[in-house]
């Protein structure tokens, strides 16, 4: 069961796999808006799908927009689900 730091690191790894390099991950902070930092719609959807497999859950339509804002908010959501 991941803690928040582990979940953040896993999400970063998923982004590196999706994007094919670590350029985006190396410059985005944990709390920075992924959208503002330039993550494409395609990459975000890909990340959400990859998170379902990596963390063993399914997204629901009622997730608030704030959850998708940053690596930190995504990690917090995963940890909260597990707990």
């Amino acid at each position: 069961m991941p803690d928040t730091a582990e979940a953040r690191q896993r999400i970063r790894s998923l982004l590196v796999e999706l994007l094919g390099n670590d350029q985006f991950v190396s410059r985005v902070s944990d709390t920075e808006s992924l959208r503002t930092a330039g993550l494409s719609s395609h990459a975000l959807v890909g990340l959400l799908v990859a998170m379902e497999d990596a963390f063993g859950f399914e997204w629901q339509d009622d997730v608030e927009p704030e959850v998708l804002r940053s690596i930190d908010s995504l990690a917090g959501y995963v940890v909260a689900l597990r707990n």
């Binding site: 959807v45 927009p65 998708l68």
Partner: peptide
């Protein structure tokens, strides 16, 4: 086809 991941991802596009 897009499922919830697509719904949520496109919402981010819409909001931007």
């Amino acid at each position: 086809a897009l499922g919830s991941a697509g719904f949520l991802g496109l919402r981010e596009s819409f909001l931007s």
